[in-house]
Amino acid sequence: MSWINLSALWKIVVFGLIAGAGLPALFAVGLRALSMKGARAQTAGADSDQIVGGNPVGIVAAAFCFLIVLAAIAWGIYEVYQIGHPAAK
């Protein structure tokens, strides 16, 4: 009988960092790629400018980053469903 499930704890910390900090960081990398040389800013609001990509390499890299983020989220939701419905397997 253990009071702390250490194996669950380290998994929550490590996967928490990967998903909770890594994915937004990847999103930021995508934003940065999108704004590579050739991009321009388009006013979208009082304190907000939409980045319009102008660099083909940047656009492809950004799309790649955003897709990975979306795929990771979809996979995460699928995993949660699988774990949470033991009978549904």
């Binding site: 960092l17 909770g20 900090a21 937004p24 960081a25 930021a28 979208a44 400018d49």
Partner: peptide, 27 residues
């Protein structure tokens, strides 16, 4: 811990973006 790490990374990675572009993207 996760949020502090994420915050630090986001500001670090996006430091060359203008404030307006950053606000729009992260919103």
């Amino acid at each position: 811990l996760v949020a502090a790490t994420g915050t630090w990374l986001l500001y670090r990675i996006s430091r060359h973006l203008s404030d307006g572009a950053r606000s729009h993207g992260f919103r």
